[in-house]
Design a protein around this nucleic acid. Structure first.
Lengths: 342, 342
DNA sequence: TGCGGGTAGTGCAACGTTGTAAGTTCTGTG
DNA sequence: CACAGAACTTACAACGTTGCACTACCCGCA
C-alpha cells in the first residue's frame, strides 16, 4: 500500500496541504518544516498519485501516438523520436496502432475511450483522406502528421514532400538517368505521400524536358518490402526499359533493390536507386541506399512541442481564440550513397 | 466540457448511482429506467472518466512496456506484438525506452513516477544482470522478458536460447560447415542472450566433435547492423579462415552479409550465414537470411496474459500466496532461406 | 394481516490530490 | 508594545467515480 499525503502529513505533524506545498515547492514554507516533511516523504517512500492528481487537474501527463504499425520501420523510428521528445517535456507516450491504412479504424481511434487518459494526440493517418477533414475536429488537442489531410482544423506537422521528391528526381536526372521508374503510386488518390511525391517527380521531369511515361509508374498500395520487390519484378517482366528507380519510401526501394539484384541487374551501373525516409537501415543495404531524410527528429520534436503548447493552453484550441491551426514544415536533406553513385 | 454521471442523472431523473449501475449492467434496473438512462447517455455523449474510475478502483487499464529502443527492429516488432495482444484484453500500452542497455536507466525505470498510472509492467532489460535480480522485487506486477536475469522474483517469459542456438549451429554443421564464426559475443558477461546462444553453439560443436576456436568468436557489445559489419571486416582482415557465420541476432547477421559481399565473398557459396530473431526484413535481404524465429507473438501474448492475471489478482503476487514466480518458454522455429542453402 | 424474500433504486463516503479562502504566527516599525 | 503586513499553515470542498449499506416497494404465502 503506497503512502499518501495523509500518511506523510501525520508523520511530519503538519496538514496534508503543507505536504502538498512542499512537494510543489511553494514559497512560504519554513525551512525546518520543509525539512521535516521531506524527511517523512523519504521515510515513507511517498510518491504522488498521478491518477488523483490527474482527476483534480484534468491532466495526466500522457500523450497518445496513433500510427499505422510499429513493424513498419518508418513508424518505429518516428515513435522512437516522439518518445524521446516527449520525455524531455516529462510526457509519457501511449501508442495505438491503427493498422496499415485502415480508414475505419483510424476514425474509430479518434473517439476511442482508450484515449481517455491522454491529454492529447499525435495522429498519423494513412487511410483517412481530405474528405474526412472535419472528423479531425475533436474535443481534445490533436496534432496531425503526414500527407493525407491538409488544411484541416488542427495543427499539422509535415515536410516539403514535393520539393524533396523533386530534389530526389533531379539527383537522378543530373546523373544522366532519363527513364526513372517510380514505385509506390496510389491510383485514384486525391492526397497523400504518393500523390505529392509523384508531383515533385513530374515537376523535375518537366524542368529537365524529359517526357513522362505512364508505364514507369508502378502502383503499390502498401509500402512494405515485398510490395517493392513485387513491383520491380512486374516492371522487369513487362520489359519496359528504365535506368533508375525512385522508391517513394525506403522500404519499397529496399525491396526493389533485392528484386533487381535477383535479376542480375547491377546497381548503380545498370539502374540507380533512390529511396525516401532516411531509415537507419539504408546505411547497411548492399549497395547503401541514397535517400531523402525528412527530418524525422524535427518532425517529432515539433509535434510534441505544439501539442504540449495546446495542452497547456498557451495557445487556445485552434479556431477558438485566433490561434488558428498552423502548418509546420520540416526541412529535408538528400543523403547520397552508393546506389546512385556516378 | 464532457458530461458526467451527474449530468446524465439529472437528465434521466435518477440518482447518479443508477446511471453508474446502468453503465455497469447491474441486474436490478427496470427496463424503462435503463432505457431512459441510456437515452440520456446518448444525448449527452457521456463517456466515463477513466481517471476518476482509476482513482476509485486503483486500475487504469494501462500497462507499461519498457524496452531498450524502438529503432532496434526486434523491439519494434515486439512492441507491435505486445500492443496487439494487449488490445485483445482492452489494455492500452505505454512505452518507455531505456536506451541500448543502459543499466542505470533500466533500474531508474523500475521506480519511475512515469509508470504511476500503469497497472503493471512488461520489462525487457539489456543492461541489468543476474546481480540485480532482487531489484525486480517491485511493488507492482512485473513480467520480465529476455535473457539477462533468470530465477528472479517475478514471472519471466523467454525462449529456449540454448536449444535454438544449438539448432542453428547444427543446421550449419549438417551442411558441412566446420569453421563457424559467431558475431555478437559479450566478453565477461555472466548471463544474457550472447552467453546462452554461445553455449548452444559450443554444445553443437562438441556433439559434432568439431573443435572450438576462440578466434572465431567476434565480440560486439551492441547488436546493430554496423556492429555486425565491423566485426565481419575485422575477421576478414585477421585472415582467420571460416566457412560460416552465426549472427547472434538478425541485425548483426545482416550487417555481416553486407561486409562479406563488399569483400566479394559469395553467400552461401563461400560462407553460409544464419541469424537469430526472425525479423521481417530477413525475408528481403539478398540473399534472404536463414534465421531462428523465437516465437515473438507467443512471447508477447504470454507476457500480456500473465501480467493481466497478476493484475486481476487471479494469482497473487509472486511469492505471496504460493503462486510463485513462473518461467514461460516460447517455442522456436528454424526458418531456412537462401543464405544457408546447400 | 404480517412477514419473508426478492427487485429497484438511493445516499454517503471514499479514492488522493489541489485551489481557495481563511486562519495563525511571525517580523519590523512607529 | 501595539499593530500592520508579510510569512506560514490549515480546513474544506471539489474532481468523477464506485462500494457499501440502506430504504422502499412488490409479490406470494401462511
Amino acid at each position: 500500500m503506497p503512502a499518501t499525503l495523509h500518511d506523510v502529513a501525520a508523520l511530519a505533524n503538519v496538514s496534508i496541504k503543507t505536504v502538498s506545498n512542499v512537494v510543489h515547492d511553494y514559497k512560504h514554507v519554513r525551512p525546518d518544516t520543509r525539512e521535516r516533511v521531506l524527511a517523512a516523504i523519504k521515510e515513507l517512500g511517498y510518491r504522488p498519485n498521478i491518477t488523483a492528481r490527474g482527476l483534480r487537474s484534468g491532466r495526466t501527463g500522457v500523450i497518445g501516438l496513433a500510427l499505422p504499425e510499429l513493424s513498419l520501420s518508418y513508424f518505429a523510428e518516428l515513435a522512437d523520436s516522439v518518445i524521446r521528445a516527449a520525455e524531455k517535456r516529462s510526457l509519457v507516450v501511449l501508442i495505438e496502432q491503427t493498422g496499415g491504412g485502415d480508414r475505419e479504424r483510424e476514425i474509430e481511434m479518434l473517439s476511442s475511450p482508450r484515449l481517455q487518459l491522454t491529454d492529447g494526440l499525435i495522429f498519423s493517418p494513412l487511410g483517412m483522406g481530405m474528405a474526412d477533414r472535419e472528423l479531425l475536429d475533436v474535443p481534445y488537442p490533436l496534432v496531425l502528421l503526414g500527407e493525407r489531410i491538409f488544411g484541416g482544423p488542427t495543427d499539422h506537422v509535415t515536410m516539403r514532400n514535393v520539393d524533396a521528391a523533386r530534389a530526389a528526381t533531379r539527383h537522378l536526372l543530373e546523373r544522366g538517368r532519363r527513364r526513372i521508374a517510380v514505385i509506390g503510386g496510389h491510383e485514384g488518390e486525391d492526397m497523400g505521400s504518393a500523390t505529392l511525391r509523384l508531383r515533385g517527380y513530374r515537376e523535375a521531369l518537366a524542368e529537365a524536358g524529359v517526357p513522362f511515361d505512364e508505364r514507369l509508374i508502378l502502383p503499390a498500395r502498401e509500402w512494405h518490402r515485398h510490395d517493392g520487390a513485387r513491383a520491380m519484378r512486374d516492371l522487369l517482366a513487362a520489359g519496359t526499359p528504365f535506368d533508375a528507380v525512385f522508391g517513394l519510401n525506403d522500404t519499397l526501394a529496399l525491396g526493389a533493390l533485392r528484386a533487381l539484384q535477383e535479376a542480375g541487374v547491377r546497381i548503380p551501373g545498370d539502374v540507380a536507386v533512390i529511396g525516401f525516409d532516411g531509415l537507419d537501415e539504408t546505411q547497411y543495404s548492399l549497395p547503401t541506399l541514397t535517400t531523402v531524410d525528412p527530418g524525422r527528429d524535427e518532425i517529432a520534436a515539433t509535434a510534441v512541442r505544439v501539442l504540449a503548447e495546446r495542452i497547456e493552453g498557451r495557445r487556445g484550441a485552434p479556431g477558438n481564440d485566433g490561434a488558428g491551426p498552423r502548418e509546420y514544415l520540416a526541412d529535408f536533406r538528400l543523403i547520397e550513397r552508393e546506389s546512385t553513385a556516378s
